[in-house]
Design a protein around this nucleic acid. Structure first.
Lengths: 221, 221
DNA sequence: TCGGCAACCTACTAACCAGTCAGTATAACA
DNA sequence: TGTTATACTGACTGGTTAGTAGGTTGCCGA
Protein backbone atom coordinates (compact mmCIF):
# COMPACT_ATOMS: atom_id res chain seq x y z
CA UNK A 1 0.00 0.00 0.00
CA UNK A 2 2.80 2.37 -0.88
CA UNK A 3 1.81 5.70 -2.38
CA UNK A 4 -1.09 6.50 -0.11
CA UNK A 5 -0.81 8.81 2.91
CA UNK A 6 -1.48 7.26 6.30
CA UNK A 7 -4.69 9.13 6.90
CA UNK A 8 -6.09 7.74 3.68
CA UNK A 9 -4.58 4.27 3.68
CA UNK A 10 -7.03 1.37 3.87
CA UNK A 11 -9.84 3.80 3.12
CA UNK A 12 -11.61 4.66 -0.09
CA UNK A 13 -9.21 7.10 -1.70
CA UNK A 14 -11.00 10.25 -2.67
CA UNK A 15 -8.65 11.55 -5.33
CA UNK A 16 -5.26 10.97 -6.91
CA UNK A 17 -3.50 9.85 -3.75
CA UNK A 18 -0.01 11.22 -3.06
CA UNK A 19 2.84 8.85 -2.36
CA UNK A 20 3.77 8.44 1.28
CA UNK A 21 6.49 10.92 2.11
CA UNK A 22 6.87 11.77 -1.58
CA UNK A 23 7.06 15.54 -1.57
CA UNK A 24 6.51 16.01 -5.29
CA UNK A 25 3.48 13.68 -5.35
CA UNK A 26 1.95 15.29 -2.26
CA UNK A 27 2.43 18.77 -3.65
CA UNK A 28 0.84 17.73 -6.92
CA UNK A 29 -2.01 16.01 -5.10
CA UNK A 30 -2.74 19.16 -3.08
CA UNK A 31 -2.81 21.10 -6.36
CA UNK A 32 -5.36 18.61 -7.77
CA UNK A 33 -7.67 18.95 -4.78
CA UNK A 34 -7.21 22.71 -4.68
CA UNK A 35 -8.15 22.95 -8.36
CA UNK A 36 -11.42 21.14 -7.64
CA UNK A 37 -12.16 23.30 -4.62
CA UNK A 38 -11.31 26.60 -6.34
CA UNK A 39 -13.37 25.59 -9.38
CA UNK A 40 -16.36 24.83 -7.16
CA UNK A 41 -16.17 27.84 -4.85
CA UNK A 42 -13.66 30.39 -6.14
CA UNK A 43 -10.70 31.79 -4.22
CA UNK A 44 -12.92 33.48 -1.64
CA UNK A 45 -15.25 30.54 -1.04
CA UNK A 46 -12.64 27.78 -1.07
CA UNK A 47 -11.84 26.22 2.31
CA UNK A 48 -8.27 25.14 3.01
CA UNK A 49 -9.60 22.49 5.39
CA UNK A 50 -11.67 21.02 2.53
CA UNK A 51 -8.63 20.94 0.24
CA UNK A 52 -6.59 19.18 2.91
CA UNK A 53 -9.35 16.65 3.61
CA UNK A 54 -9.79 15.86 -0.08
CA UNK A 55 -6.04 15.32 -0.41
CA UNK A 56 -5.93 13.13 2.68
CA UNK A 57 -3.42 15.29 4.57
CA UNK A 58 -3.73 17.85 7.34
CA UNK A 59 -4.25 21.53 6.68
CA UNK A 60 -0.74 22.29 7.87
CA UNK A 61 0.62 20.56 4.76
CA UNK A 62 -0.88 23.25 2.58
CA UNK A 63 1.20 25.82 4.42
CA UNK A 64 4.22 23.57 4.32
CA UNK A 65 4.17 23.50 0.50
CA UNK A 66 2.46 26.81 -0.21
CA UNK A 67 2.83 29.91 1.93
CA UNK A 68 -0.82 30.92 1.84
CA UNK A 69 -4.20 30.15 0.33
CA UNK A 70 -3.57 32.93 -2.17
CA UNK A 71 -0.23 31.48 -3.29
CA UNK A 72 -1.80 28.03 -3.58
CA UNK A 73 -4.41 29.61 -5.84
CA UNK A 74 -1.73 31.22 -7.98
CA UNK A 75 0.05 27.87 -8.28
CA UNK A 76 -3.21 26.25 -9.45
CA UNK A 77 -3.72 28.98 -12.06
CA UNK A 78 -0.12 28.76 -13.24
CA UNK A 79 -0.26 25.00 -13.73
CA UNK A 80 -3.56 25.20 -15.62
CA UNK A 81 -2.27 27.94 -17.89
CA UNK A 82 1.02 26.34 -18.67
CA UNK A 83 -0.97 23.39 -20.01
CA UNK A 84 -3.15 25.69 -22.13
CA UNK A 85 -0.18 27.65 -23.41
CA UNK A 86 1.63 24.51 -24.55
CA UNK A 87 -1.39 23.41 -26.55
CA UNK A 88 -1.85 26.86 -28.12
CA UNK A 89 1.80 27.17 -29.12
CA UNK A 90 1.90 23.73 -30.72
CA UNK A 91 -0.30 24.93 -33.59
CA UNK A 92 1.14 26.84 -36.52
CA UNK A 93 -1.73 29.19 -37.24
CA UNK A 94 0.25 31.39 -39.61
CA UNK A 95 0.34 28.61 -42.21
CA UNK A 96 -3.47 28.38 -42.39
CA UNK A 97 -6.24 30.39 -43.98
CA UNK A 98 -8.28 32.53 -41.52
CA UNK A 99 -11.13 30.07 -41.90
CA UNK A 100 -8.96 27.06 -41.06
CA UNK A 101 -7.09 28.91 -38.31
CA UNK A 102 -10.27 29.99 -36.51
CA UNK A 103 -11.84 26.56 -36.66
CA UNK A 104 -8.64 24.86 -35.49
CA UNK A 105 -8.20 27.35 -32.68
CA UNK A 106 -11.77 26.89 -31.50
CA UNK A 107 -11.65 23.12 -31.68
CA UNK A 108 -8.44 23.09 -29.65
CA UNK A 109 -9.94 25.41 -27.03
CA UNK A 110 -13.14 23.40 -26.77
CA UNK A 111 -11.32 20.08 -26.44
CA UNK A 112 -9.01 21.51 -23.79
CA UNK A 113 -11.86 22.98 -21.74
CA UNK A 114 -13.84 19.74 -22.01
CA UNK A 115 -10.88 17.63 -20.89
CA UNK A 116 -10.08 19.72 -17.85
CA UNK A 117 -13.44 19.99 -16.12
CA UNK A 118 -12.22 22.74 -13.78
CA UNK A 119 -10.78 25.07 -16.38
CA UNK A 120 -13.94 26.93 -17.37
CA UNK A 121 -15.10 27.53 -13.78
CA UNK A 122 -11.68 28.71 -12.62
CA UNK A 123 -11.47 30.98 -15.64
CA UNK A 124 -14.90 32.42 -14.87
CA UNK A 125 -14.35 32.88 -11.14
CA UNK A 126 -11.07 34.59 -11.83
CA UNK A 127 -12.77 36.97 -14.28
CA UNK A 128 -15.94 37.69 -12.28
CA UNK A 129 -14.83 37.49 -8.65
CA UNK A 130 -11.18 38.49 -8.87
CA UNK A 131 -11.59 40.70 -11.93
CA UNK A 132 -8.55 39.12 -13.56
CA UNK A 133 -6.18 40.12 -10.75
CA UNK A 134 -4.18 36.88 -10.81
CA UNK A 135 -4.74 35.97 -14.46
CA UNK A 136 -2.92 38.85 -15.95
CA UNK A 137 0.37 37.62 -14.49
CA UNK A 138 0.26 34.63 -16.81
CA UNK A 139 -0.67 36.50 -19.96
CA UNK A 140 -3.85 34.48 -20.12
CA UNK A 141 -5.60 37.11 -22.14
CA UNK A 142 -3.51 36.21 -25.14
CA UNK A 143 -6.40 34.00 -26.29
CA UNK A 144 -8.40 37.10 -27.18
CA UNK A 145 -5.42 38.52 -28.99
CA UNK A 146 -4.94 35.37 -31.05
CA UNK A 147 -8.64 35.17 -31.99
CA UNK A 148 -8.88 38.88 -32.79
CA UNK A 149 -5.78 38.57 -34.99
CA UNK A 150 -7.28 35.71 -36.98
CA UNK A 151 -10.57 37.58 -37.35
CA UNK A 152 -8.85 40.78 -38.46
CA UNK A 153 -6.95 38.92 -41.17
CA UNK A 154 -10.11 37.16 -42.26
CA UNK A 155 -11.92 40.48 -42.65
CA UNK A 156 -9.00 41.95 -44.59
CA UNK A 157 -8.87 38.97 -46.93
CA UNK A 158 -12.62 38.97 -47.43
CA UNK A 159 -13.21 35.54 -45.89
CA UNK A 160 -15.12 37.05 -42.99
CA UNK A 161 -17.83 39.70 -43.02
CA UNK A 162 -17.28 43.23 -41.71
CA UNK A 163 -17.09 42.54 -37.96
CA UNK A 164 -15.25 44.04 -35.03
CA UNK A 165 -12.43 41.58 -34.21
CA UNK A 166 -12.22 42.22 -30.46
CA UNK A 167 -15.94 42.20 -29.70
CA UNK A 168 -16.37 39.12 -31.84
CA UNK A 169 -13.46 37.36 -30.13
CA UNK A 170 -15.07 37.92 -26.73
CA UNK A 171 -18.48 36.77 -27.95
CA UNK A 172 -16.95 33.67 -29.54
CA UNK A 173 -15.27 32.68 -26.29
CA UNK A 174 -18.59 33.22 -24.51
CA UNK A 175 -20.46 31.00 -26.96
CA UNK A 176 -17.79 28.32 -26.55
CA UNK A 177 -17.27 28.13 -22.78
CA UNK A 178 -20.70 29.08 -21.39
CA UNK A 179 -21.89 25.50 -21.87
CA UNK A 180 -19.08 24.19 -19.66
CA UNK A 181 -19.32 26.88 -17.00
CA UNK A 182 -23.03 26.50 -16.43
CA UNK A 183 -23.22 22.77 -17.07
CA UNK A 184 -24.59 21.93 -13.63
CA UNK A 185 -27.33 24.49 -14.09
CA UNK A 186 -28.36 23.67 -17.66
CA UNK A 187 -28.01 19.90 -17.54
CA UNK A 188 -31.71 19.44 -16.76
CA UNK A 189 -32.39 20.81 -20.27
CA UNK A 190 -31.06 17.42 -21.38
CA UNK A 191 -32.86 15.48 -18.63
CA UNK A 192 -29.93 15.54 -16.23
CA UNK A 193 -27.49 13.97 -18.68
CA UNK A 194 -23.78 14.32 -17.97
CA UNK A 195 -22.76 17.23 -20.18
CA UNK A 196 -19.09 16.15 -20.07
CA UNK A 197 -19.74 12.74 -21.63
CA UNK A 198 -17.90 12.33 -24.91
CA UNK A 199 -21.03 12.32 -27.07
CA UNK A 200 -22.46 15.45 -25.45
CA UNK A 201 -19.09 17.24 -25.70
CA UNK A 202 -18.75 16.30 -29.36
CA UNK A 203 -22.25 17.56 -29.98
CA UNK A 204 -21.52 20.87 -28.27
CA UNK A 205 -18.27 21.31 -30.19
CA UNK A 206 -20.07 20.67 -33.47
CA UNK A 207 -22.87 23.13 -32.67
CA UNK A 208 -20.59 25.81 -31.27
CA UNK A 209 -18.21 25.71 -34.23
CA UNK A 210 -21.08 25.77 -36.73
CA UNK A 211 -22.70 28.73 -35.00
CA UNK A 212 -19.46 30.68 -34.87
CA UNK A 213 -18.13 29.83 -38.35
CA UNK A 214 -21.45 30.72 -39.96
CA UNK A 215 -21.59 33.79 -37.75
CA UNK A 216 -18.31 35.27 -38.99
CA UNK A 217 -18.24 34.10 -42.61
CA UNK A 218 -18.90 36.57 -45.41
CA UNK A 219 -22.28 35.77 -47.02
CA UNK A 220 -20.68 35.57 -50.47
CA UNK A 221 -17.82 33.41 -49.20
CA UNK B 1 -33.88 65.32 6.26
CA UNK B 2 -36.71 62.88 6.11
CA UNK B 3 -36.07 59.62 4.28
CA UNK B 4 -32.61 58.91 5.61
CA UNK B 5 -31.94 56.53 8.52
CA UNK B 6 -30.32 58.04 11.57
CA UNK B 7 -27.03 56.30 11.11
CA UNK B 8 -26.75 57.79 7.64
CA UNK B 9 -28.26 61.21 8.23
CA UNK B 10 -25.88 64.17 7.78
CA UNK B 11 -23.45 61.79 6.12
CA UNK B 12 -22.69 61.05 2.53
CA UNK B 13 -25.39 58.59 1.62
CA UNK B 14 -23.86 55.55 -0.02
CA UNK B 15 -26.86 54.22 -1.88
CA UNK B 16 -30.60 54.69 -2.35
CA UNK B 17 -31.38 55.77 1.20
CA UNK B 18 -34.45 54.28 2.90
CA UNK B 19 -36.99 56.55 4.53
CA UNK B 20 -36.71 56.86 8.27
CA UNK B 21 -38.98 54.30 9.89
CA UNK B 22 -40.43 53.50 6.46
CA UNK B 23 -40.52 49.72 6.44
CA UNK B 24 -41.13 49.31 2.73
CA UNK B 25 -38.36 51.72 1.76
CA UNK B 26 -35.87 50.13 4.16
CA UNK B 27 -36.70 46.65 2.93
CA UNK B 28 -36.24 47.74 -0.66
CA UNK B 29 -33.00 49.53 0.19
CA UNK B 30 -31.60 46.39 1.84
CA UNK B 31 -32.50 44.46 -1.32
CA UNK B 32 -30.59 46.99 -3.43
CA UNK B 33 -27.44 46.69 -1.34
CA UNK B 34 -27.78 42.91 -1.13
CA UNK B 35 -28.03 42.70 -4.92
CA UNK B 36 -24.72 44.56 -5.25
CA UNK B 37 -23.04 42.40 -2.63
CA UNK B 38 -24.33 39.09 -4.02
CA UNK B 39 -23.35 40.14 -7.54
CA UNK B 40 -19.83 40.95 -6.37
CA UNK B 41 -19.23 37.91 -4.14
CA UNK B 42 -21.99 35.33 -4.58
CA UNK B 43 -24.16 33.87 -1.83
CA UNK B 44 -21.20 32.20 -0.15
CA UNK B 45 -18.87 35.18 -0.26
CA UNK B 46 -21.39 37.91 0.53
CA UNK B 47 -21.10 39.47 4.00
CA UNK B 48 -24.28 40.50 5.80
CA UNK B 49 -22.32 43.18 7.64
CA UNK B 50 -21.29 44.68 4.29
CA UNK B 51 -24.90 44.71 3.09
CA UNK B 52 -26.01 46.42 6.29
CA UNK B 53 -23.24 49.02 6.10
CA UNK B 54 -24.00 49.81 2.46
CA UNK B 55 -27.67 50.27 3.33
CA UNK B 56 -26.85 52.44 6.32
CA UNK B 57 -28.59 50.23 8.89
CA UNK B 58 -27.35 47.66 11.37
CA UNK B 59 -27.01 43.98 10.57
CA UNK B 60 -29.93 43.17 12.86
CA UNK B 61 -32.26 44.89 10.38
CA UNK B 62 -31.47 42.26 7.77
CA UNK B 63 -32.76 39.61 10.15
CA UNK B 64 -35.73 41.79 11.05
CA UNK B 65 -36.90 41.89 7.42
CA UNK B 66 -35.43 38.61 6.15
CA UNK B 67 -35.05 35.54 8.31
CA UNK B 68 -31.62 34.54 7.03
CA UNK B 69 -28.89 35.37 4.52
CA UNK B 70 -30.28 32.60 2.33
CA UNK B 71 -33.81 34.02 2.33
CA UNK B 72 -32.46 37.49 1.60
CA UNK B 73 -30.68 35.95 -1.38
CA UNK B 74 -33.88 34.32 -2.58
CA UNK B 75 -35.70 37.64 -2.28
CA UNK B 76 -33.01 39.31 -4.39
CA UNK B 77 -33.31 36.60 -7.07
CA UNK B 78 -37.09 36.77 -7.06
CA UNK B 79 -37.17 40.54 -7.53
CA UNK B 80 -34.61 40.43 -10.34
CA UNK B 81 -36.50 37.66 -12.13
CA UNK B 82 -39.91 39.20 -11.82
CA UNK B 83 -38.48 42.21 -13.66
CA UNK B 84 -37.06 39.97 -16.40
CA UNK B 85 -40.26 37.98 -16.68
CA UNK B 86 -42.38 41.10 -17.11
CA UNK B 87 -40.16 42.28 -19.96
CA UNK B 88 -40.24 38.87 -21.63
CA UNK B 89 -44.00 38.53 -21.40
CA UNK B 90 -44.66 41.99 -22.81
CA UNK B 91 -43.50 40.86 -26.25
CA UNK B 92 -45.82 38.97 -28.58
CA UNK B 93 -43.31 36.65 -30.21
CA UNK B 94 -45.97 34.46 -31.83
CA UNK B 95 -46.91 37.25 -34.23
CA UNK B 96 -43.39 37.49 -35.62
CA UNK B 97 -41.28 35.52 -38.06
CA UNK B 98 -38.55 33.37 -36.42
CA UNK B 99 -35.99 35.85 -37.69
CA UNK B 100 -37.75 38.83 -36.16
CA UNK B 101 -38.61 36.96 -32.96
CA UNK B 102 -35.02 35.88 -32.32
CA UNK B 103 -33.58 39.31 -32.96
CA UNK B 104 -36.22 40.99 -30.79
CA UNK B 105 -35.72 38.49 -28.00
CA UNK B 106 -31.95 38.94 -28.04
CA UNK B 107 -32.13 42.72 -28.15
CA UNK B 108 -34.49 42.72 -25.17
CA UNK B 109 -32.22 40.36 -23.21
CA UNK B 110 -29.11 42.40 -23.99
CA UNK B 111 -30.74 45.71 -23.06
CA UNK B 112 -32.05 44.22 -19.82
CA UNK B 113 -28.68 42.77 -18.81
CA UNK B 114 -26.90 46.02 -19.69
CA UNK B 115 -29.35 48.13 -17.65
CA UNK B 116 -29.13 45.98 -14.53
CA UNK B 117 -25.39 45.74 -13.96
CA UNK B 118 -25.83 42.99 -11.36
CA UNK B 119 -27.96 40.62 -13.39
CA UNK B 120 -25.23 38.81 -15.31
CA UNK B 121 -23.02 38.24 -12.26
CA UNK B 122 -25.92 37.00 -10.12
CA UNK B 123 -26.92 34.70 -12.95
CA UNK B 124 -23.37 33.40 -13.19
CA UNK B 125 -22.88 32.83 -9.46
CA UNK B 126 -26.23 31.09 -9.20
CA UNK B 127 -25.38 28.79 -12.11
CA UNK B 128 -21.75 28.00 -11.22
CA UNK B 129 -21.60 28.18 -7.44
CA UNK B 130 -25.14 27.17 -6.48
CA UNK B 131 -25.74 24.98 -9.56
CA UNK B 132 -29.14 26.58 -10.11
CA UNK B 133 -30.46 25.51 -6.71
CA UNK B 134 -32.42 28.74 -6.12
CA UNK B 135 -33.04 29.68 -9.74
CA UNK B 136 -35.22 26.79 -10.60
CA UNK B 137 -37.88 27.96 -8.16
CA UNK B 138 -38.58 30.97 -10.34
CA UNK B 139 -38.69 29.14 -13.66
CA UNK B 140 -35.76 31.21 -14.77
CA UNK B 141 -34.72 28.62 -17.28
CA UNK B 142 -37.67 29.55 -19.44
CA UNK B 143 -35.32 31.78 -21.43
CA UNK B 144 -33.71 28.71 -22.95
CA UNK B 145 -37.15 27.29 -23.70
CA UNK B 146 -38.26 30.46 -25.47
CA UNK B 147 -35.08 30.68 -27.55
CA UNK B 148 -35.12 26.98 -28.41
CA UNK B 149 -38.77 27.30 -29.47
CA UNK B 150 -38.00 30.17 -31.83
CA UNK B 151 -35.02 28.30 -33.25
CA UNK B 152 -37.00 25.12 -33.76
CA UNK B 153 -39.68 26.97 -35.69
CA UNK B 154 -37.06 28.75 -37.74
CA UNK B 155 -35.48 25.46 -38.73
CA UNK B 156 -38.89 23.97 -39.62
CA UNK B 157 -39.76 26.98 -41.76
CA UNK B 158 -36.38 26.97 -43.46
CA UNK B 159 -35.33 30.39 -42.17
CA UNK B 160 -32.58 28.86 -40.08
CA UNK B 161 -30.02 26.20 -41.00
CA UNK B 162 -30.11 22.67 -39.61
CA UNK B 163 -29.08 23.34 -36.00
CA UNK B 164 -29.85 21.83 -32.64
CA UNK B 165 -32.24 24.29 -30.94
CA UNK B 166 -31.20 23.62 -27.33
CA UNK B 167 -27.44 23.64 -27.83
CA UNK B 168 -27.73 26.73 -29.96
CA UNK B 169 -29.92 28.48 -27.38
CA UNK B 170 -27.28 27.91 -24.70
CA UNK B 171 -24.45 29.06 -26.97
CA UNK B 172 -26.42 32.16 -27.95
CA UNK B 173 -26.94 33.14 -24.32
CA UNK B 174 -23.22 32.58 -23.73
CA UNK B 175 -22.26 34.82 -26.65
CA UNK B 176 -24.64 37.51 -25.35
CA UNK B 177 -23.90 37.67 -21.61
CA UNK B 178 -20.21 36.70 -21.45
CA UNK B 179 -19.25 40.29 -22.26
CA UNK B 180 -21.18 41.56 -19.23
CA UNK B 181 -20.09 38.81 -16.81
CA UNK B 182 -16.39 39.26 -17.51
CA UNK B 183 -16.43 43.00 -18.15
CA UNK B 184 -14.01 43.81 -15.33
CA UNK B 185 -11.54 41.27 -16.69
CA UNK B 186 -11.75 42.10 -20.40
CA UNK B 187 -12.04 45.87 -20.15
CA UNK B 188 -8.29 46.31 -20.62
CA UNK B 189 -8.81 45.00 -24.16
CA UNK B 190 -10.43 48.39 -24.72
CA UNK B 191 -7.81 50.32 -22.70
CA UNK B 192 -9.82 50.21 -19.49
CA UNK B 193 -12.92 51.82 -21.00
CA UNK B 194 -16.19 51.44 -19.08
CA UNK B 195 -17.88 48.55 -20.87
CA UNK B 196 -21.31 49.61 -19.56
CA UNK B 197 -21.19 53.03 -21.21
CA UNK B 198 -24.02 53.45 -23.70
CA UNK B 199 -21.78 53.49 -26.78
CA UNK B 200 -19.89 50.35 -25.72
CA UNK B 201 -23.15 48.57 -24.88
CA UNK B 202 -24.68 49.52 -28.23
CA UNK B 203 -21.56 48.28 -29.97
CA UNK B 204 -21.68 44.96 -28.13
CA UNK B 205 -25.39 44.53 -28.90
CA UNK B 206 -24.75 45.19 -32.59
CA UNK B 207 -21.84 42.75 -32.77
CA UNK B 208 -23.56 40.04 -30.71
CA UNK B 209 -26.77 40.16 -32.74
CA UNK B 210 -24.88 40.12 -36.04
CA UNK B 211 -22.77 37.15 -34.96
CA UNK B 212 -25.80 35.20 -33.80
CA UNK B 213 -28.21 36.06 -36.62
CA UNK B 214 -25.59 35.19 -39.24
CA UNK B 215 -24.74 32.10 -37.23
CA UNK B 216 -28.24 30.63 -37.35
CA UNK B 217 -29.49 31.82 -40.73
CA UNK B 218 -29.80 29.36 -43.61
CA UNK B 219 -27.14 30.16 -46.22
CA UNK B 220 -29.77 30.36 -48.97
CA UNK B 221 -32.11 32.50 -46.78
C1' DT C 1 -50.47 63.15 26.03
C1' DC C 2 -49.98 58.74 26.63
C1' DG C 3 -50.00 53.70 25.57
C1' DG C 4 -48.63 50.42 22.39
C1' DC C 5 -46.39 48.71 18.60
C1' DA C 6 -43.39 48.81 14.69
C1' DA C 7 -38.81 50.12 13.51
C1' DC C 8 -34.32 50.23 14.87
C1' DC C 9 -30.01 49.68 17.70
C1' DT C 10 -26.21 47.79 20.98
C1' DA C 11 -23.95 44.11 22.54
C1' DC C 12 -23.44 39.65 22.52
C1' DT C 13 -22.60 34.25 21.20
C1' DA C 14 -21.35 30.17 18.92
C1' DA C 15 -19.23 28.55 15.09
C1' DC C 16 -15.96 28.87 11.62
C1' DC C 17 -11.65 29.62 9.32
C1' DA C 18 -6.77 31.03 7.82
C1' DG C 19 -2.68 30.43 9.54
C1' DT C 20 0.94 28.72 13.33
C1' DC C 21 3.74 25.88 16.25
C1' DA C 22 5.76 22.34 18.86
C1' DG C 23 6.57 18.07 18.20
C1' DT C 24 6.51 13.06 15.83
C1' DA C 25 7.48 9.58 12.31
C1' DT C 26 10.14 7.95 8.47
C1' DA C 27 13.46 7.39 4.86
C1' DA C 28 18.18 7.69 3.72
C1' DC C 29 22.67 7.77 4.73
C1' DA C 30 26.87 7.57 7.87
C1' DT D 1 22.69 1.19 14.42
C1' DG D 2 22.44 5.96 15.25
C1' DT D 3 21.93 10.59 13.24
C1' DT D 4 19.74 13.92 10.55
C1' DA D 5 16.83 16.19 7.25
C1' DT D 6 12.32 16.30 5.79
C1' DA D 7 7.58 14.97 5.47
C1' DC D 8 3.88 15.21 8.30
C1' DT D 9 0.52 15.77 12.41
C1' DG D 10 -2.69 17.55 16.21
C1' DA D 11 -3.86 21.09 18.84
C1' DC D 12 -3.95 25.70 19.10
C1' DT D 13 -4.86 31.17 18.18
C1' DG D 14 -6.78 35.40 16.69
C1' DG D 15 -9.85 37.27 13.85
C1' DT D 16 -14.21 37.01 11.44
C1' DT D 17 -19.10 36.04 10.61
C1' DA D 18 -24.08 34.50 10.74
C1' DG D 19 -27.39 35.01 13.75
C1' DT D 20 -29.79 36.59 18.43
C1' DA D 21 -31.50 38.71 22.82
C1' DG D 22 -33.02 42.53 24.82
C1' DG D 23 -33.32 47.29 25.10
C1' DT D 24 -34.50 52.09 22.87
C1' DT D 25 -36.79 55.36 19.84
C1' DG D 26 -40.27 57.47 17.29
C1' DC D 27 -44.89 57.32 15.20
C1' DC D 28 -49.89 57.03 15.45
C1' DG D 29 -54.31 56.41 17.27
C1' DA D 30 -57.43 57.26 21.22
Amino acid sequence: MNGVPRSQQSKDAKKSAPLTRDAEATRSSILDSAEDEFAANGLLGARTEAIAAKTGVTKAMIYYYFQSKEQLYEAVLERAFLRRLQIAQSINLAAMSPDQALERCLRELLIDVSKNKNLSAIFFYEAVQNKGKYYNKFGAMSLYGVLAGILEQGVAKGNFRQLDPMHTAVNIVGASVFYFCTRENIKHLWAGKNLLSSDMVEWHIKEAIELIMNGVRASDG
